[in-house]
């Protein structure tokens, strides 16, 4: 465990070395947040509501999604594909550490840092814009925390799985690009998915991405009945277990294909 803690600390230092890049990255986040805030402000200005959401609920969703994106959507697992393609992956095979664990430690370091900045951004912007948030029911707090932790793991595992495509092809960037945009929208990172209604919403609810952003925020906003919360968490856990099993299978087969090209 000590070696993964060391990777965590080194990753923090690496992130903080390129401070200007970090700042620019956060500025990009703020622009997206402002865009979404003003869209919903404009749409709720006269009636105070949109679809089944009040203005306060929509603002809570937008700012909450900003926080969750920072916690859940990481970038470290993306590097696995380039590590496999350029041969640096071989270094991990020679060291007494688990590649999955090492990348997850890097991911946690990045996520904790980004969460810190996202909390500050959210509080400052909420104060400047005079935004009020909805409060969750006390009984939903533990399912929300559990759901966010599961979402963090599920995103990482899915993203790692897609990166492992690099064992078979040098062209893993395109599939990753497609995966990321499918995930961004299907997770509800930009808007509450239930405004889509009908068949599209039903189709999206069958995907694992549904549980990443939309589901925890819906629990927070009290949009999901208590019994269905635990059912949803069960389905999310099943997706996580299935993805972990797939990683196990793909890893074993992928290693047989790995040629160490680029060493």
């Amino acid at each position: 465990m000590k070696k993964y803690w060391a990777i965590f600390k080194i990753s923090w230092q690496r992130q903080l070395t390129y401070r200007l890049n970090l700042l620019m990255g956060r500025l990009r986040n703020i622009i997206v947040l402002l865009l979404l805030y003003y869209v919903w402000l404009s749409l709720t200005l006269t009636s105070g509501k949109f679809s089944s959401y009040s203005q306060i609920e929509l603002f809570t969703y937008v700012f909450g999604a900003n926080l969750l994106r920072s916690v859940i959507f990481g970038s470290q697992s993306r590097q696995t594909a380039s590590e496999i393609n350029d041969g640096t992956f071989s270094i991990y095979l020679l060291r007494p550490l688990n590649h999955f664990g090492a990348v997850f430690a890097r991911e946690l370091a990045e996520r904790s840092l980004y969460l810190f900045f996202a909390v500050i951004e959210t509080l400052v912007l909420a104060f400047l814009l005079g935004v009020k948030f909805a409060a969750p029911a006390p009984a939903t707090l533990s399912p929300i925390i559990l759901c966010v932790l599961l979402s963090l793991c599920l995103y990482f595992v899915l993203s790692y799985l897609v990166s492992m495509l690099a064992f078979w092809t040098r062209e893993a960037d395109g599939p990753r690009f497609l995966f990321e945009w499918l995930l961004e929208f299907s997770s509800g990172a930009y808007f509450p998915l239930d405004i889509l209604r009908g068949l599209i919403f039903t189709a999206l609810s069958c995907l694992p991405f549904f549980y990443l952003i939309y589901f925890p925020l819906s629990i927070y906003l009290g949009k999901i009945a208590h019994g269905r919360i635990w059912l949803g968490l069960g389905i999310e856990t099943a997706w996580l277990a299935l993805s972990l099993w797939l990683i196990y299978v793909v890893w074993r087969r992928g290693l047989k294909k790995f040629t160490g090209e680029g060493i």
Binding site: L43, E171, D173, L178, W181, F185
Partner: peptide, 30 residues
């Protein structure tokens, strides 16, 4: 790099289609 090219193009279309859908949906309510 056909796999990369095709999936990048589909990814761009997906991104475009989702935003288009979002904007279209907004006007179902207002």
């Amino acid at each position: 790099n056909r796999l990369d090219a095709v999936t990048y193009l589909i990814g761009k279309l997906v991104r475009f289609a989702f935003f288009f859908l979002f904007l279209w949906t907004i006007f179902n309510y207002t």
